[in-house]
Design a protein around this nucleic acid. Structure first.
Lengths: 205, 205
DNA sequence: TGTGAATCTTGATCGGGATCAAGGTTTATC
DNA sequence: GATAAACCTTGATCCCGATCAAGATTCACA
């Protein structure tokens, strides 16, 4: 109400909701969330957050307070194991991202999430999100289906990792997500595929 | 109703419900399912199925029609990749098991599930189960939490598989599930850990 | 409980991917 | 657009885990 009286705030408000329109589209078209639930969710999404290249969205030890939707840019998810970084995933525009184990369990994260370029995202807090789940059965149902899909994705990923030959591991990823080879520096992809950057390079032709 | 008239059927009925008592306990204590939902579920669980050592519960190509609860015995889950078998998991007494991707998506399974010894299980059909989810929000909520946990387990497993040294992969599994080293022939565990049986043997002392 | 099959162990050899190193190319930032 | 930094490629070497083989042990089932 009050913000409507100030032209400046109104502009902010408009720009904010305008930026959320991809998210609105995502909730309705990708997740098939009914309009009522989509709107309920949208009201709790917080204003955009910007990251420069190299900045961290989440660090090991932090409790993941948000579920993020990426408006623009790419991020990498990794953990460190004996001085090395092991990449476990990527995020790019029009996808949801967070340190899921930390977000789901509300415990400190083992993962880092780092921007690979200028990145813009919006987030909803753990508290808000799980409250909404309780209030909206259809949202709970949709989230359950999303987690089911995530589980199936992890099972697919397990087969990728169990494939012995590096060449085949590359091929499987190419078949499934060719676009990330254009989006993301190959050294991160190599780590993700459990191989040295040199091995990826030698097997890409 | 009718079965009550026959003493023989009544005995069968009694033995059946008696066998389900571990499942009842599992639903209430492990899954924290309220009594009403636990009972609703129990009514749809089908009579015990027995497998001999080596028999298949599920084969590649079959659509997984059931979610199973293991009363007794152990099973191994694997898929075949170029004439080889790759183990991806195990099931043992007092756990739920099935080819999850097939069960969730209602599509042909990529996995085999095979009994490693005499095994007894009960199952609920995909149709019954997902109907119940729609009817009981608290069941949906519990299932959502279970799938969340399964997802977290898969993420943990991913770190296991990404660990470079075979010795450490063994150690991680020992820390988490020492009991399976007593339950299950080591050649299956070796496959599960992405290494040759000889490598497992050489690194167990 | 006896008998064959399955499993586990130990040894020897081999190969593929990691590592180290150096040069060339692309990309970020001012 | 200049400059440095990050990234990719190619070559040479090495090491660890796979593979093959044979013997010992345990286990399944009659």
């Amino acid at each position: 109400m009050k913000r409507r009286q100030s032209p400046a705030s109104q502009i902010r408000f408009c720009r904010f909701t305008e930026k959320l329109s991809p998210l609105h589209h995502f909730l309705q078209e990708q997740l098939h969330l009914p309009l009522e639930e989509a709107n309920a969710l949208l009201r709790h999404w917080q204003k955009p957050r910007s990251l420069k290249r190299g900045e961290f969205l989440t660090r090991k030890g932090q409790v993941e307070q948000h579920l993020y939707y990426i408006l623009e840019g790419t991020v990498v998810i990794f953990y460190d194991i004996e001085e090395n970084e092991q990449v476990v995933g990527f995020g790019y525009a029009d996808t949801l991202i967070c340190s899921f184990p930390s977000f789901i369990r509300n415990r400190p994260s083992d993962y880092y999430i780092q921007a690979l370029g200028a990145t813009e995202l919006v987030g909803i807090t753990h508290t808000d999100f799980y409250c909404l789940l309780e209030q909206h059965p259809r949202l709970e149902s949709t989230w359950r289906q999303m987690v089911e899909e995530a589980l199936l994705g992890r099972i697919e990923r397990e087969i990728d990792l169990l494939t012995v030959s590096p060449r085949e591991r590359i091929q499987r990823l190419l078949n499934r997500s060719q676009h990330i080879f254009q989006l993301i520096p190959h050294k991160y992809i190599a780590s993700y595929l459990r191989m040295a950057p040199e091995t990826l390079s030698r097997n890409m032709k």
